[in-house]
Design a protein around this nucleic acid. Structure first.
Lengths: 345, 345
DNA sequence: TTGTATTCTGAAAACGCTTTCATATTTTTA
DNA sequence: TAAAAATATGAAAGCGTTTTCAGAATACAA
C-alpha cells in the first residue's frame, strides 16, 4: 500500500490541505503543526505522488529539450552534451525534469511537440538549434507554447519573429573574427567548409565568412566553398573536393571544429603542412581542437552557459515573469593555436 | 477552455468510458461508434491530458536515463549520445518519454532516483554505466524499482546480483583481443592508459589487459600503468607520465579512443612515430578514431544497439513480461587501422 | 470596545483521466 | 433451444494531489 498525503494528515492530526500547504511551502501554517507534519512525513517516509501533484497543479514540472532537429549527427556532437549539462544545472535546482526529444523527421517533430505540450506533459521547450525556415517555431507560437531558442530566427521567415525568446552567440561576428584572423596571417584565398544549409547557425557562419572577405576587399569565389555534411566521412570528401578544385587556397575556415580537424588530417595526408602551406581555423572549441596536430585555432563558444541562460529564461517565461529583453547574446572568444601560427615549442 | 474527454463523449453521444476505451484501444467498442468517436476527436482537435492519464493508469509513461554517474566528462563522451539515440529509437515507437538524469553527486543521485520512482514520475531506469560498488543498484533493488543496466555488476558487491537485468559487451574479452593484437604485432612492453577505477567497464578493460599479458607469458609491471582521467588534459599528463617513466614501451592500450587519440598526439609531439616506434590501440571506435594520424586501431562497440536492447528489455520488465535471460551480451569487433600497422596508401 | 487585518484551518470541489462493476445485448456452443 | 461466451456500454468510484472557499482564531488599530 502506497502512503498518501492522507496518511500523513491522519498521523499529524491535520487535514490534507494543511499537509499540502507544508509540502508546497505556501500560505500560513502554524509553526508547531508544520513540524508535526514534517516529522510525520519523514517517519512515514512519504513521497508525494508527482502525477497527482501535476494534475492538481496543472503543471508538468518538466520541460522538453529538442535535440536532433533533423540530423542524426548533430546529436553526437559535443555541443549537445554540454548544452544539456548547462540546462540541467539550472533545472535541477528548481526540481524541473528534462524530457529529451529526439525525432526522426520534421513532421514527427512538429506533431509530437505540439502534442507533448497540449497534453500537459511538458510546460515548455528549449530548442537547441533553429532551421532557416522553421515551421516548428511557427507552430509553437501559433499554439502559444512557451519556448526558448538557442540560436536565432531570421526575420521574415517567422511571423512575429520579434516575439521569440532566444539565447545566442553572434555567429556572424565570430566568423568575421575567425576569417579576419586568417587574413591578418596573410591568407588571401580562403576556403570554407560549411554545414548543410538548413540551419541558421551554419548560414550565419557562412555570412560571416563572406562579410570578412568583403571587409578586406577579397573576392568571394564559389569554388572556395564546400559542404562538409554531418559525418567525418562527408567532411573528408568535402575537404578533398576543396583541395582538388582549388589547389591554390592558402587557408580554410571550417564552420565547426570537427570539420576543421578533418581538414587538418586530410591536408597532412596529402603531405602538405598546416600552418605552413594552409592555415586552418575552426569554430566551437571542442575538445578535439586540442588533439589535432597542430592544435586548432578556433572560436570558443560558451556552450554550457548557453544552456544555463536558456534554462533560466524559460523558467522566467513559464512563471509569467517575462524578461525585459527577448534576446540574450553571449560572447565568444578567438583562440589562437598552432593551426594558424608556428607552434611555439 | 481545455477540451476534455467529456466534450468528446458529448459530441459523439457516448460515455467517457467508451471514449477512453477507444483512446486506449482496449476492450470491445462498436465499430461504428468507434468511428464517430474518432471523428469527434479530430474535429475537436482533442489531445488527452497526459497527466490525468498517468494518474488514472498509475503509469508515468516515462523512463529515466542515468547519464553521468559521477563524472562530468563521461557525459560529453560520444558514447552517451549514441546510446541515448538507441534508447530513443525504441521508446519513441512505444510512446514512452525519456527523462534525462544528470546528478552532480552520488548521494544526490541515489536519493533523487529513488524519489523519482517512488513519486511515480518514472516507471523505470536505464543505467548507462555501473560503478564497482554501486549503491544505487543496491537501493534500486531494495526498493523494487525496475531498471536495466548497460554494463554489469560484480558478484559479491551487490546482494542478489544475479537478479540484475543487463546488456553488455564483454570488455574483458575485447581487451584481451586488443592487447593480443598488439602482441601479435610484436609488442612485448605494453603500456595501458586506464580510466579512474570506480567504473566496472574500466576495471574490466584493465583485467583484459592483464589477462592478455598472462596468456602470452608477459610480465605485468606497475610502471606500465597510468590513469588517464576523464579530460584531455588529464590524459595528456598520463601519457607523458607513461612515456617518461617507461621509455622502453613498444605499445599502448588505451581504454577508450579519446585517450588513444591523446596518446598518438603526444607520441608524435615527442618526435616518435606511431606505429613505427609505438603501437597504439584504443577501445570504442568513436569518430575520432578516423581522425587521428595514423588512424586508430580499436575495438568497435555497437553502442546504438546497446541502447536499443536496454530499452527493449526495460519495456519487457515493466510489462511484467520478463525475458528468460537476465543478461544479453553484444559482440564487439577488432578494427585494425594504421596505428598498429604501416598504413597502406 | 469595535472593526479590520492577518493568520490559520478543514471541507469539498476540482484536475481529467482509467478502471471496475453491473448489466444488456448478441453470438456461439452443445 | 437453453446455456455459455463474447461483445458492448455507462455509472461511478477511484487516482492523489492542489486549490478555492468559508470561516475561526488571533493580532492590531482606532
Amino acid at each position: 500500500m502506497r502512503i498518501t498525503i492522507k496518511d500523513v494528515a491522519n498521523k499529524a492530526g491535520v487535514s490534507v490541505s494543511t499537509v499540502s500547504r507544508v509540502l508546497n511551502g505556501r500560505n500560513y501554517v502554524d509553526k508547531e503543526k508544520k513540524e508535526t507534519i514534517m516529522s510525520a512525513i519523514s517517519e512515514l517516509n512519504y513521497v508525494p505522488n508527482a502525477l497527482a501533484q501535476n494534475l492538481g497543479s496543472q503543471k508538468a514540472g518538466t520541460i522538453g529539450v529538442l535535440a536532433l532537429r533533423g540530423s542524426q549527427q548533430a546529436f553526437s556532437n559535443p555541443y549537445f552534451s554540454e548544452v544539456i549539462r548547462g540546462i540541467s544545472s539550472v533545472m535541477e535546482k528548481e526540481n524541473v525534469q528534462i524530457l529529451l526529444n529526439n525525432f526522426e523527421s520534421m513532421e514527427q517533430e512538429i506533431e509530437n511537440c505540439i502534442r507533448l505540450a497540449k497534453s500537459g506533459r511538458v510546460d515548455g521547450f528549449i530548442l537547441l538549434s533553429s532551421r532557416i525556415h522553421d515551421d516548428l517555431i511557427v507552430e509553437l507560437m501559433k499554439n502559444e507554447i512557451d519556448f526558448v531558442l538557442i540560436g536565432r530566427v531570421i526575420e521574415n521567415t517567422i511571423p512575429n519573429h520579434e516575439e521569440v525568446y532566444y539565447i545566442n552567440t553572434d555567429n556572424i561576428k565570430s566568423s568575421v573574427e575567425a576569417v579576419s584572423h586568417l587574413i591578418e596571417k596573410g591568407a588571401a584565398k580562403i576556403g570554407i567548409i560549411t554545414a548543410p544549409g538548413k540551419f541558421v547557425v551554419s548560414e550565419d557562419r557562412y555570412l560571416g565568412y563572406r562579410q570578412a572577405l568583403m571587409m578586406h576587399g577579397l573576392k568571394f569565389e564559389e569554388r572556395f566553398c564546400v559542404n562538409g555534411g554531418y559525418t567525418v566521412k562527408d567532411a573528408k570528401m568535402a575537404v578533398n573536393k576543396l583541395l582538388d578544385q582549388s589547389p591554390d587556397i592558402d587557408s580554410i575556415f571550417a564552420t565547426d571544429d570537427m570539420k576543421a580537424a578533418v581538414a587538418i588530417h586530410e591536408i597532412n595526408e596529402r603531405g602538405l603542412s598546416v600552418p605552413d602551406d594552409i592555415l586552418v581555423i575552426g569554430h566551437g572549441d571542442f575538445e578535439i581542437a586540442e588533439l589535432v596536430k597542430p592544435r586548432l585555432s578556433t572560436i570558443r563558444v560558451p556552450v554550457f552557459e548557453l544552456g544555463e541562460q536558456a534554462a533560466k529564461v524559460l523558467l522566467q517565461i513559464m512563471d509569467k515573469n517575462f524578461p525585459e529583453e527577448k534576446g540574450c547574446m553571449i560572447d565568444t572568444k578567438l583562440i589562437i593555436r598552432g593551426s594558424t601560427r608556428k607552434e611555439v615549442k
